[in-house]
Write a protein that binds this DNA or RNA. Sequence first.
DNA 1: CAGTGTGACTGAAGCGCTTCAGAACAGCCA
DNA 2: TGGCTGTTCTGAAGCGCTTCAGTCACACTG
Lengths: 358, 358
Amino acid sequence: MDVDRPRKPTLDTVAGAVGVSRATVSNAYNRPDQLSAALRERILETAAALGYPGPDPVARSLATRHSAAVAFMLGQQLSASFSDPALSIVLDGLASTVDGHDHCLVLMPGGADRGGPRPQTVARAQADVVVAYSLPDDAPALAAVRARGLPMVVIDQPVLPDTARVEVDDAGGARLAAAHLLELGHRRFAVVTFSLRPDGGNGPASPARLAEATFRVSRDRLTGYLSELRAAGVVDVPVWECSGSRRELSRSAGRTLLTGDDRPTAVLCASDELAFGVLQAARDLGLAVPEDVSVVGFDDVPAAEHAEPPLTTVRQPLVDKGRHAGELALRLLDGGRPGPPTRLAVTLVERASTALHT
Amino acid sequence: MDVDRPRKPTLDTVAGAVGVSRATVSNAYNRPDQLSAALRERILETAAALGYPGPDPVARSLATRHSAAVAFMLGQQLSASFSDPALSIVLDGLASTVDGHDHCLVLMPGGADRGGPRPQTVARAQADVVVAYSLPDDAPALAAVRARGLPMVVIDQPVLPDTARVEVDDAGGARLAAAHLLELGHRRFAVVTFSLRPDGGNGPASPARLAEATFRVSRDRLTGYLSELRAAGVVDVPVWECSGSRRELSRSAGRTLLTGDDRPTAVLCASDELAFGVLQAARDLGLAVPEDVSVVGFDDVPAAEHAEPPLTTVRQPLVDKGRHAGELALRLLDGGRPGPPTRLAVTLVERASTALHT
DNA sequence: CAGTGTGACTGAAGCGCTTCAGAACAGCCA
DNA sequence: TGGCTGTTCTGAAGCGCTTCAGTCACACTG
């Protein structure tokens, strides 16, 4: 039955039909200036008539030695993105930049091997540059990229030799937020963070665990918060680690943290999403925000503005982050050198979830 | 300067170093049973020593004529996923299925050309099966897949000849929800939906516009709601179209819809996310849910259970949807035929956002 | 000892394309 | 007419791998 199924047309088929060489047909697609307009027209028409969909991308990649694709490695499951708007926004910025230059995006979700994608997955990906987003420092996927000799740009991650980097001053931003609260007169704090390590830990985090954090973002924000507080003489601040970034997790964290007489008057969260959960917890407990407790987030996702009350938070330029990463990737693709890290600015956005401690 | 940079090692390099044929090295990676364990060991060691990262994926794809990748086409921007948890969950199900079989996921976000990815992007994607998710019926990307002769599985979309399909009974689910409300005694309704067409329309939707909807999901859910109501004699139900699925959009829709003396006593939403906005709007207006107004959603995303009040909604198996699509894609990849559509069941989940109309 | 497997390895074709050095030819100027 | 410059098209090499029909040597049978 397969016998008389017509084979898919190739460049040769078209060349044969038109009566020109294969090179000419190739040029018709890739270098219109290399042949007369009339012939090109004829070739394209014949191709259409034969149902030839244009040069095969794989063969083209092999011949040109680049695949016109950038791979994106994640430090978490994809489903995490619905509870982590920051990820989707960054990814979107990246995708549109890359797509605008006719490159594809190969997605490699993490969560498998120490937080990152499996090395095997990396080895088989058809891409010639990869961008890594918030992987744990020790993810094997990182080494796999190395092994393939692919250029890499990292976002929200520690310095790796010979990679392009876009980074955000997480620690500085966190310090801004802590300083703000300190200025408002707060002295009793709590901190809520997302994962420190990809092991599902959930609950109060010991100093030992803090020291062992492998997710750079959690580590930096946390360090920023705690160091600013310590500088002001505030120590022994309880830190609660959520195993993910879903607000339900921080909601129950909040309910524990905000119970008791010596409850904190201010809660510093590692992300807006976590802050939303804490806001919820306060409501659950009948506490008013910001009258009874101040809450700050981090990221300034679109929903922060519409929260109740509108959330004071540290804004980081999420779309730019993705876009920049995309541009760096494109540059590396063109043989550019990594260059110094791009550092994006963060700012404190004061809204209604923080107030003077009375 | 480039002159003495060592070229990347290839299969040949390794073969030469070990003193065997290229075929044997290839076998070492792909068919361990074709050579002695000792030789294989030696080959792998030499490869490691030379820094050979394993067979080049592109070359391998060309030779084997399949790329071990599945492409995923979206009917919207990627950033939509943070306001559309359903998308992330489906995508996650798909990604993990596909990755579990050592296949990559090539992402092609939409929003560009009549809602879908650009045909050009499709033409260049290195994948040998594509999954289309909620594209408008007339997206050019669909034709581009056709032209390449790639097998396709569609999710949430109308029947296309010769494609595998996973579908959900959207209309039936919607009818369930409407019937539930009818049973509770409601007679004054409003419907809030997301986009009917990818043109950014936002506001009350005329019957003409309803008739022209190109997003199948919106169309079916809407039709389900309205037909069930009509069957009960309820007509002239106002429909509000939001230009996206963000809850801020439905929040303002809700504020308009729920104002006035003859305001609806029940609001049917095309998704949970939209329902959350309506819940918010009711709160804004000082209306109690479900006492003053009942609200139902659609999807049953994780947050529905934690909403205030917990949301009555139509549950569809989101993870299964992605997983099934992934499995179908893998089957098509293996040369399987499309087969009849997989239809997933929906159920009504009654929670606290709906009550008797008193 | 011829005959027959069998396991281990190889040669060469081929996947569908790009690219580059050149061939062929026309037009132009002196 | 002869040399030159351009334009248009071609031949062939090569991208890095898989695969399949063998070849070869070696043991095992009767």
